[in-house]
Design a protein around this nucleic acid. Structure first.
Lengths: 199, 199, 199, 199
DNA sequence: CATGAATGAGTTTTCATTCAT
DNA sequence: GATGAATGAAAACTCATTCAT
């Protein structure tokens, strides 16, 4: 039962539901990065998005569902980028493909910090596993295409390793010089490894 | 219907305080790995250690303090191992040192999963930062000692990268073959990078 | 992931207000029986009636008002039936009247389960009391007319008892044989009691 | 995290857990009768028992569990009374047994109003069904023992009917004279029915 | 008349922390 | 040292009700 206390003028209700959901998800993504999933409250998410708690629950039945929606949207985006990369690098030189992939992942991780934050939560569900598997498959396919003589299994191993490599610089916020250096170091390390081929 | 349990006569709790604390910390470490820090309750920690909740608070003022104690103990252990490694590899061939370091970190990460779990929690405190810095310093020193001509900064960059590399296989529980393959791949990649020297 | 549903084009809602209200009340009646008054939500009522929540509030100011309307309509119907029974049994043999009343109430209770469900809610309001009083008066009048020598007060007592008797079989859904047996038993018991007159 | 605001002196904590549970259940029983199960809040239950909300949840995991505990305790009591009645009326005259049963149920219903209130909630669970079945069995056994020539099934039918009969006067709070009259009427009706035997 | 997105007070439930014994 | 009953602030979640369109 909602008894109006101080009937505040309501914000314009013209925003389409789509905008509302987008604002809520953006708010959630920010908070998940700032404080982590557990420490973020549903009320905070709503407040930062300029919505009431009930509005948040209008679109997402649980807090877990918010995380899932945020993560899925970002995974979708990454998947799209990886797909596009595969298209546009068809037939290119292996080293070029690797460089592009490296750049793509590095940029994505840097600009989508919530992606890593949510993907590696304790207590991995079915859908989180599925997301990781999909990413692994796409990246493995890219490697396999770029280096046809790649021995069995190596593409998959690289698909596991490379995304994790790109997360390393993320922890170095506030140490910009070191961060850039680490990124270069990682790039160099991976290139050398790929050029050398399997041992 | 859940009604008050009949207070069972308790087993004599005569372990020395030291054992008590060790049991509590071990219990906490297990639970932090299984369910994550936030999802672990103080009561669970006490129960699994066979202690009462009050006893847990006798030794640790807050839940955060438990995590800190657990993490510090493990960091201390790692630090000791790194120190010992430095002693025993003095004057050895660079490649050998690297291999040893790799093995040491790999084993440590695999056997101390709570270490990573706690070190990378969102909301980094002063003491967590200090811990990371110390590790970085020790590993950088090892690299600098092993490869005297290492260009300025590279030892530090490697000290950032290598521990993170060794965490990658941890996520592959249940895929043993892939896990071992990834570990080999990482070893190979790092060795090649070190052999090649700086660009 | 639960995201805003795409607003489907709506079917034309051209039913006259009267039909609308009838549909809403029917929907409410069903749900009150299925889940109880408290567990039924206004949104459910509207949805099952194929209406929007706002439409429901167009006709009923509160949830309580819905219950009141539903109950009043059914009480009105029962009252009408009782009135008709009184007319058509004028001058009949007492036993016949009793049988008819018994049949009437039994059928009504079985076909209007929401009637009992709403009438016996905790927290009895003025209007619920009034409804019970009216029913009591009508049934008492029937008894008084059928059995003129009925001692003072007995008609009223029977008017309290008989409707409650007829509710008993309602609880036996799923045990049809027992239910029918109980109904017969009740009929027999009441007839014997009436034939014996007051003690 | 509980940050003490105004450290109120705590009430004496000497009451045994048993008393605590009893007080909570008594408080719940009162409120369930006064306002019904749904309208009663866990906070109210705790407050009326002089406990904190957390204390209530210490003993009962959910509100449903509170109801279950209250109902089970009362059902246990009724069951004990019925058992004792069976023992002490062994070999007695049928009419006497019936009278005793009638008195027992009448008194029980009047003094344990929460029993009916909880047993007839919408959404009958397994345990509620079990409770009804048990009562039915016990009463049927009593009837079968009292009236050996009772035709098959009638004992069970009576076991369904009689407890419901005894609930009827409960609704007449505030109309004492009518209430007593109704009770006598019911007694008379049942006796006549039993004396007449099956049709 | 009709709609349904939006609201927020109120409810259930959890759990870190305290303290009398 | 050891205990565990007790606490209550805070978080997740519900739903009757409103109102701009």
């Amino acid at each position: 039962m909602a008894v109006a206390t101080v009937p505040q003028p309501r914000a314009p209700q013209q925003r389409r539901g789509h905008d509302r959901v987008a604002a809520l998800m953006a708010s959630a993504a920010e908070l998940f990065v700032e404080k982590g999933f557990d420490a973020t409250t549903m009320t905070e998410i709503a407040v930062r998005a300029g919505a009431a708690i009930g509005t948040l629950y209008l679109f997402f039945p649980t807090k877990e569902a918010v995380a899932q929606a945020v993560l899925m949207a970002q995974a979708e985006e990454l998947s799209g980028q990886l797909y596009a990369l595969r298209e546009q690098t068809e037939g290119m030189h292996a080293a070029t493909i690797a460089d592009q992939l490296f750049a793509l992942l590095g940029t994505f991780m840097a600009t989508h910090p919530v992606y890593s934050a949510l993907l590696d939560l304790p207590g991995d569900d079915r859908w989180r596993r599925a997301m990781r598997a999909r990413r692994r498959g796409q990246i493995a396919a890219l490697f396999a295409q770029a280096y046809p003589p790649l021995p069995a299994g190596q593409a998959e191993r690289l698909a596991v390793i490379v995304p994790q490599l790109m997360r390393i610089p993320l922890a170095l916020i506030g140490e910009k010089r070191l961060r850039d250096g680490v990124l270069d170091e990682l790039r160099l390390m991976l290139n050398r490894h790929l050029e050398a081929g399997d041992g």
